[in-house]
């Protein structure tokens, strides 16, 4: 259940950002989470919503999540393609198994909306 630790770290960071920007309230937090980041977004939101109530600055903050698809690039023909899960695709264009992941492992806070 790493989502609780991640939510706690995120809250600490959001509090810092809120204070730095003299925010009265943080209203919206936008995250980008890769399809293969290993973060269960429902659990993250659950943990965040449980802990945010302890912090007036954050208590009405809403999280929205953009899920980033898993995209591979072929090392041989350099074409990119999207795929549903990790397990071992070959390049649909040239059949090569030499692939690298270029997106889908993101775990980012993209932006925060605050009331000042």
């Amino acid at each position: 259940m790493h989502e609780v630790s991640i939510a706690l770290g995120m809250i600490e960071e959001l509090m810092r950002i809120g204070r730095e920007n003299n925010a009265k309230k943080i209203t919206h937090v936008k995250l980008r989470i890769g399809r293969m980041s290993g973060i269960v977004t429902d659990s993250l939101i659950f943990a965040f919503d449980a802990v945010k109530l302890e912090h007036p600055l954050l208590s009405s903050a809403v999280i929205s999540i953009e899920e980033v698809p898993l995209v591979y690039e072929c090392n041989k023909c350099n074409k990119k393609f999207e795929i549903e899960n990790f397990t071992f695709p070959s390049c649909p264009f040239c059949g090569s198994f030499g692939l690298k992941i270029i997106s889908g492992e993101e775990q980012h806070i993209e932006k925060v909306e605050v009331e000042v």
Partner: peptide, 13 residues
């Protein structure tokens, strides 16, 4: 309201 662009890791701390 103000939007702050962060694009930082969720695990920054």
């Amino acid at each position: 309201t103000k939007t702050i662009d962060l694009n930082q890791s969720l695990l920054k701390s």
